[in-house]
């Protein structure tokens, strides 16, 4: 059921808990293992705003196991306000609504249902900004 695997990712998945490099200012999410030469102090936790814009997008019609109910669904590379570029689904939108550069905001949604006897996996998606 991959319970532990999903549980480990909660802070990043649920609320875009990322990290910022104290030396370079680089921001990334989800957090990443330490590289050679880095110490636990190299990166500090940073909660991201969830605001960003579409860098690119695609609507998938052939999808992996477990994602059939959502299909067709849009995926995107989103450039976050803090600079990080992340991959996520877009939700609450139709393909015709989308364009590169469009502002989007983070919402927490079901990513996948691991089955009637498994956990529901929640995580970030992005959608057109609700005013």
């Amino acid at each position: 059921m991959d319970i532990a695997r999903h549980w480990r990712g909660h802070p990043a998945r649920y609320r875009l808990q990322g990290e910022r490099n104290r030396n370079t200012g680089e921001v990334r999410v989800p957090p990443h293992p330490l590289a050679l030469g880095e110490t636990p102090d190299t990166w500090e936790p940073l909660k991201l705003s969830g605001r960003g814009e579409i860098y690119s997008f695609s609507v998938l019609r052939q999808v992996p196991e477990g994602y059939e109910l959502f299909a067709p669904y849009p995926i995107a590379l989103v450039r976050l306000e803090e600079g990080a570029l992340i991959t996520a689904q877009l939700t609450d939108c139709a393909e015709a609504d989308l364009e590169i550069g469009m502002p989007v905001e983070m919402v927490t949604r079901q990513l996948v249902d691991t089955g009637a006897d498994g956990v529901l996996v929640y995580g970030y998606k992005f959608r057109p900004v609700v005013q």
């Binding site: 990712g9 998938l60 999808v63 995926i75 991959t87 689904q89 990513l111």
Partner: peptide, 9 residues
């Protein structure tokens, strides 16, 4: 972890 879980192919 960063891409596959989002249903990305």
């Amino acid at each position: 972890e960063a891409e596959g879980i989002h249903g990305v192919t």
